[in-house]
């Protein structure tokens, strides 16, 4: 079995699946209600009852991490979708009209967006509209657009010189039809791998934005904000900082391993580990 030879793929898939499952289950059930304050039980260390302990309001950390997974995954997933839905068609169009003014405009706009790290976009949006999870989605999503546009343009340019594309042109097919029928399916692997990478980067970015207060706002639990709140209590309650951090690390690690594994699976020749 080819699948069984890919340890990274399995390990990554299982790690990532744990957090996706946690997020999904949290809609139906969490060990404790994360909106209910329980001051008498505040700042407890991990125990049989509260597996990861409680925070300064007595809320169950384990439950909060389950609900926080929702925010992280939702923000990153939507941001990647924005990147793919807007970026891939732009890249395909630029490649199909290579060296035309259209190509030039698309590539220069990409350069422009690349000059704005996601954090700057988030800062600008927040300065005007105030902080929210939507800001994080838009900021990370905009940042993803040139990533996918460049990737698909480069991949499509390579494919356009291949002889099977010439054969399709001789068969009278239009550039857009060739892009959909021949180019897109042949770069799907690349897009899936990059999508996984951007997904994991999105989770890191979302955590960073909520940590500095530009992302999800209370009462929506998020891993980044849990870390921000834990910071002042790190001397006497370090477990508050540890568990949300581990949640981020393991989710990102799982997605990265999964992406690496996918790459090896699709193309064993380049199993070099990812950048």
């Amino acid at each position: 079995m080819r699948w069984l030879q890919h340890r990274n793929l399995w390990l990554g898939a299982m790690l990532a699946a744990v957090f996706v499952a946690a997020a999904l289950i949290s809609f139906l059930w969490t060990p404790f209600d994360v909106t209910k304050l329980n001051i008498p039980e505040k700042l407890q260390t991990p125990s049989m009852e509260h597996w990861f302990g409680t925070d300064h309001f007595g809320r169950d950390i384990f439950s909060m991490i389950m609900v926080g997974a929702r925010t992280s995954i939702a923000v990153a997933l939507v941001a990647v979708s924005i990147g793919i839905v807007a970026g891939v068609p732009l890249g395909l169009a630029a490649a199909a009209r290579h060296d035309s003014p259209l190509d030039e405009i698309i590539m220069r706009s990409n350069d422009l967006v690349f000059a704005f790290p996601a954090l700057l976009i988030a800062i600008m949006i927040t300065a005007i509209f105030g902080p929210s999870a939507i800001n994080a989605i838009i900021a990370i999503g905009i940042f993803n657009i040139p990533v996918f546009a460049r990737l698909s343009r480069a991949a499509a340019l390579g494919l356009w010189t291949r002889e099977f594309i010439l054969a399709a042109r001789v068969a009278g097919k239009s550039a857009s039809r060739i892009s959909v029928e021949h180019i897109l399916p042949n770069m799907l692997n690349l897009l899936i791998v990059q999508g996984t990478i951007q997904f994991s980067l999105g989770i890191l970015a979302e955590a960073g934005l909520s940590y500095v207060g530009l992302g999800a706002q209370p009462p929506i639990p998020s891993w980044g904000r849990m870390l921000a709140e834990s910071q002042t209590m790190i001397t006497f309650a370090p477990h508050l900082a540890l568990f949300p951090g581990f949640a981020i690390v393991f989710t990102v690690l799982g997605l990265n391993l999964f992406g690496d594994g996918l790459r090896d699976y699709f193309d064993p020749k380049i199993s070099r580990g990812r950048h």
Binding site: R162, E163, F164, A167, A168, V170, A171, G172, P185, N186
Partner: peptide, 18 residues
Amino acid sequence: RRRMQVVFQDPYGSFNPR
């Protein structure tokens, strides 16, 4: 277009592998 067709050099790159 249907009156002429083409055969290319590269036996590996001339076909969509999918």
